[in-house]
Design a protein around this nucleic acid. Structure first.
Lengths: 184, 184
DNA sequence: ATAAATCTACCAATAGATAGATAGGTTATA
DNA sequence: TATAACCTATCTATCTATTGGTAGATTTAT
């Protein structure tokens, strides 16, 4: 694949995580990549195409990180610790989860991007559900695996959203403490 | 106070909750209120002034709702139930919490608006902390009141953010179930 | 020489913001 | 009381900058 396209996607992803899709223009993106805006349209005909590509990329990268956890972590506690760590890393450099950011902008997205967004959250929650199911003996909560997965995912998305406002990480740590308290 | 200004604030608030501050223009706001954009600048000299006013308004209205809960609800369970209900109501009509939405756009806000945003979340979490403290006998969690307050607030903000993407309310209900499970 | 990548140059639409005018109401004063 | 001064709320008209997007020429690489 094109090296320039990858670079554009990388720059665009960071920009969206930082200030949203609405505040990303073809011109600033082009400037940051050292080309002209017309050339960005060569790779991404319109903004919807760009948005969809970014979500697909991000989902794939997230999935890869989950696979790494599957490979290297044994018990539920360390798996969930690693899961939380993904969000802590995102919060650094003043960023949000790309899909969390786009969720706020969902009413301005095309149908394809909306569908991809749904898929992202579904995938993350399904992974969580599976982990909880596979380690149910380590778990101590009256909530179903599915509900707990939703609580964890939405809790972390909300935590980075709010933490970024005052530049700390207290809420994400509180979420982690909650998760730990649900594991025996 | 001016009737027109109130109307503008109401329209703008709904618009921001729906699609964000970046996607609200003086012209569309003016159109919806039946005046010209120059007249909007009469009430709100620049966009930062508008943003700050909206946050102040929203914070005040939220505070009023919390006061209502204080007056009418006795035990922790029903208080927290009512607190969750605020967010459920917001989610209807495809909206987000105004401050949750602006939290996503925080990097485009002026310093005053940022400070007001921080205040909003602080206020909400302080109210929650106080409730937990006052009803500690009903509580069964190893987490501190403060941490639990942060978990609840950020959890609900994340829940409406994600729920809106696929038009449901499963995550907010999951968050409510979690909260209930933390109360004896 | 062909295809991929990038450019120049533009377009129509929209953005936030300002200047200056006006009509109508209120207040202060001679 | 009459009138001058001021205030409120709105308008028209305009400015500069930016937006997403397109057509067609040109360069670069295979």
């Amino acid at each position: 694949m094109s090296k320039k396209k990858d670079q554009l996607e990388q720059i665009a992803t960071q920009s969206v995580q930082h200030s949203g899709l609405s505040n990303l223009s073809f011109r600033t993106l082009a400037d940051d990549a050292g080309i002209k805006s017309a050339s960005v349209h060569y790779y991404f005909p319109n903004k919807g195409d760009l948005a969809a590509s970014l979500i697909e990329n991000y989902t794939q990268s997230f999935q890869a990180q989950l696979n790494q956890i599957d490979e290297h972590k044994r018990n539920l506690k360390s798996k969930l610790r690693a899961f939380v760590q993904i969000f802590e890393d995102v919060l650094e450099n003043d960023r949000l989860c790309l899909c969390g950011m786009m969720a706020a902008e969902v009413n301005g997205l095309d149908e394809q991007s909306k569908a991809l967004l749904k898929e992202y959250f579904l995938m993350a929650e399904q992974w969580l559900t599976l982990q909880l199911k596979q380690h149910k003996e380590e778990l101590s909560s009256p909530l179903s695996n599915n509900k707990l997965a939703r609580v964890i995912m939405s809790g972390l998305e909300g935590a980075i959203l709010l933490d970024r406002v005052d530049g700390g990480s207290e809420r994400i740590r509180a979420q982690h403490d909650l998760i730990k308290s649900l594991i025996s």
